[in-house]
Every structure is written in structure tokens, then in C-alpha cells.
Simulated scan of single mutants.
Amino acid sequence: MNYPARILIVEDDMIIGANLSLQLTKLGYEVTGIESRGEAAISNVKEHIPDLLLLDINLKGSLDGIETAKAIRKYVDLPIIYLTANTDDATFEKAKETHPKAFITKPFNRLNLQRTIALVLEQPKEGSGTGRLHLDIEVLSDRFFVRHHGKMEKLLFDEILYIEADRNYSTIFTAKGNYVLTSTLKTMEERLPTTQFVRVHRSYMVNLSNVDIVADHHLEIGRTVIPLSKSHKEVFMSRIQLI
């Protein structure tokens, strides 16, 4: 399952914001919103958690772009690209403290926008210390509380069949439905109990108690065939023998 990268635009010039949104949509990205104030951007991030933030550095209102970035980083570590017209040295140095991935100077052209975003999104995310997980799920001893349709929904570990990763998203598959989380599989692996869950492929983790069939190069849970990679097979086999 491939998801388009989700981008939030924070720009107080609505004409520029609308133009950006149109260009990003044509490039195949999903725009999660166009916000003109820092407070609204923070609320949007909490609710939708984009993959990338395009942020006007000279945002008008009580929070400028830099203060907005600092506030958002308290909740989630997102890659940020600052949009800027004329930035003096002092503002540039202050902006650097928020560790942006890039600066795009206004007026920008489509090719520069496309290349900059592509380079930022292609940078490795696993192991980067992102804080996405705590906004989507709360992990207890035997269950998740998963954010689903705006509410926290209980999901017992035993209900989970397997987890499939796609970039920085993970989809939890259960008999009653699926849940998409903005979290890497590496982060999920670190948070889940190793006695019950094990990684079997770079893109899959399974609940050992729900595995029905084990073959040389794959396993089956219900009617779903899941690849079993050579690099993960030894650990998987040692764990499943303990079930």
C-alpha cells in the first residue's frame, strides 16, 4: 500500500498558499490543509500529523514561523521547510535553531519546489528520533489505545494479526478492521512486546499467536500470505517455537 506524502502548508498569504496547494497536488502529494496562523497550524498537526511542514518563516500573528515550529516540535518531530522572502542574518540564525531541512526563497518556481521536497522526503526517517507515535497510540501492558476517527479506541494485542509498513506509516490489521498509524515499523517494533510480536520482513511484523502456516519463504495468517525474509527467519523460528 503506497501513501502519498502528506504536506501541511502554513502561509498567511492565501494566494501563495492556494498556488502551493495546487502545485503540490499536481505533483502527487496530499495537502492536509492551508493554515494562515501558527495556532491553527499546531491544531492541524495534532489532528492530521503530516509528513512535511511548509512553513512561512515570517508568519503574521502572535506566533511567527519560528515560534510555530518550536511549538509543533513539542508534540511531534516533523521535517520543516521554511518559506522565506527576505530573511536577515539574525532571523536565519534563529531559524537554524529549529533544525529545518531546507529553505525555499519566494518567489519560488515549480522545479525548485519539486526537487527540494523530494530530497527532504527521501531522507531516512527510521532512527531519527521522531515523536509521531505518542500522538496516535498509547501502549499499555496488553493493549493499544489507537486514535481512530478522532477518538481513542481500545485494541487488545491479541486482536492484532499483523502489521504492514509503508515508509513512515504502519497499518495494523485485525479481524474487525485496519488502523493506519503515522509510525515506522522500527518504532512499532521497539514499543511492542517481543514475546508476542516479531519482524519477519522489512515491511512486516506478525503476532506469533495468530500465525497459521509457516513455509520456507513465507507464512500465512488466515488467507493472507506474508513474506518471510532470510535475514529475519532465524529470529522468527526461535520465537515461534516458544509459543
Results as ranks from 00 to 15, higher is better:
D88T: 07
F145L: 13
H201I: 05
N2M: 08
R239H: 13
L121D: 09
T187A: 02
F108N: 08
R147D: 03
L113R: 09
I213D: 02
T32P: 15
P50Q: 00
A165N: 05
L22H: 06
T91N: 08
Q241W: 03
L135W: 02
T91G: 00
D216W: 02
L121I: 05
N58K: 08
I81V: 11
K106D: 07
E67D: 07
P4G: 06
L24V: 07
T105R: 11
N112H: 10
G177I: 03
T84D: 08
L20M: 09
H134D: 04
L135Y: 03
E220K: 13
K233Y: 06
Y3V: 10
S209G: 04
E138D: 09
T25F: 01
D212T: 07
M205F: 02
F108W: 05
L83H: 15
I137T: 02
I221T: 00
N44H: 07
L111C: 10
Y29H: 14
I172V: 05
L59F: 04
L83V: 14
T184V: 04
V139A: 01
L185W: 01
I34L: 14
F157S: 05
M205I: 03
Y162L: 12
V180H: 09
N19D: 12
I80Y: 08
T224C: 12
L20P: 13
I15R: 15
L181F: 06
P107A: 04
L24P: 15
